[in-house]
């Protein structure tokens, strides 16, 4: 399959697309935590990192099958997610965000100081296993899963907590349980993404999972439109492509990236798809298309959109 793709596609594009799919899985995890459940997390990259190291190490040391390694990465991250979810009992809003940031920095420093992770030198020699096809399939599964979660009793409980946690509790929703669950599931997604990432780059360094990465993922989720799955997909795609597109400007590229973040926020403060409901929009577009095809009745009531 991969061979086939390579005949039609330049290797560089394949790599960029693979990266987009991987990051999308991680971003969907944060979407569940922050976008759906409303719990601020400034430390999502730490879960990606935990997943990446867990997957890579179980491959290198135990020689487990690749997909099992990725799954283990997801589970390791989920476990850490449970740990981080508990403070959400006492901390809300920005304070929770700050605590997650602190947790993530501690994780980074620990990864930096462990022998098994190779410390600051990084971890090399991870076999290349992640393919575009696999990343794409898993990203699609992640999107599908997210839609299923959101349209269920479980998902409605998460949204209720975001909208009004006190009302949610009075509706019989155990806030702590659902918040911790959201952290666990969201971190599982991050960990799976990390496992794929490790077997894509073949090299890991703790500095790649610092708060800059966390904020990058947060930006994916917010810029597309917080709480919206298409928004997360779009945000991840645009912001992963952006540095590549800006590559022509060489050293100014990250400068422009930063600038564009500010500009996009100013013009679309609720995100690119924030407040846009895709389904009615699609219906309206179809409607107006049909309208154009049929001649006007001349009663003056034909609404154009």
């Amino acid at each position: 399959m991969e061979e086939l793709l390579r005949q039609y596609m330049n290797l560089y594009y394949i790599q960029v697309l693979t990266l987009i799919c991987i990051m999308m899985i991680a971003a969907l995890g944060l979407h569940l935590i922050t976008g759906v459940t409303g719990q601020l997390s400034f430390g999502h990259a730490a879960f990606v990192g935990i997943g990446a190291y867990a997957a890579a190490l179980s491959n290198i040391h135990w020689g487990l099958p690749f997909l099992i390694c990725v799954l283990l990465g997801g589970l390791a991250a989920a476990l850490a997610g449970v740990l981080v979810g508990f403070p959400s009992m006492r901390l809300t809003g920005d304070y929770l965000g700050i605590a997650t940031l602190g947790f993530a920095e501690i994780v980074r420093v620990i990864l930096m100081n462990m022998d098994i992770t190779g410390g600051a030198r990084g971890l090399a020699g991870i076999p290349r296993e992640t393919t575009l096809v696999l990343a794409f399939v898993l990203a699609a599964v992640a999107i599908w899963t997210m839609y299923r979660i959101q349209d269920s009793r479980f998902g409605r409980a998460l949204v209720a907590i975001r909208e009004d946690d006190i009302a949610a509790e009075c509706n019989g929703i155990n806030g702590l349980w659902y918040k911790v669950s959201a952290f666990a599931i969201g971190s599982f997604f991050a960990g799976v993404a990390g496992g794929l990432y490790a077997h894509f780059l073949q090299y890991l360094n703790p500095s790649g999972f610092g708060f800059a990465k966390s904020f990058e993922i947060l930006t994916f989720v917010v810029l597309g439109g917080l709480g919206s799955i298409p928004g997360t997909v779009l945000g991840t795609t645009i912001l992963t492509l952006l540095p590549e597109v800006l590559r022509f400007s060489a050293e100014y590229r990250m400068m422009m990236y930063g600038l564009l973040m500010v500009i996009m926020m100013i013009f679309r403060p609720r995100g690119l798809l924030g407040g846009v409901d895709l389904l009615p929009l699609l219906k309206r577009m179809l409607y107006s298309l049909r309208k154009k095809q049929t001649p006007l009745n001349g009663d003056g009531n034909g609404r154009s959109v």
Binding site: L218, M254, M255, G258, M261, M265, I266, P269
Partner: peptide, 25 residues
């Protein structure tokens, strides 16, 4: 300032953009 009345996360993301800009500059 343009984001003062918008969601809490908008100015936060904007500030991260500024931060990246200043560092790379």
């Amino acid at each position: 300032r343009p984001l003062r009345r918008s969601t809490r996360l908008a100015p936060l993301i904007s500030s991260i953009g500024v931060s990246i800009f200043l560092q790379t500059l």
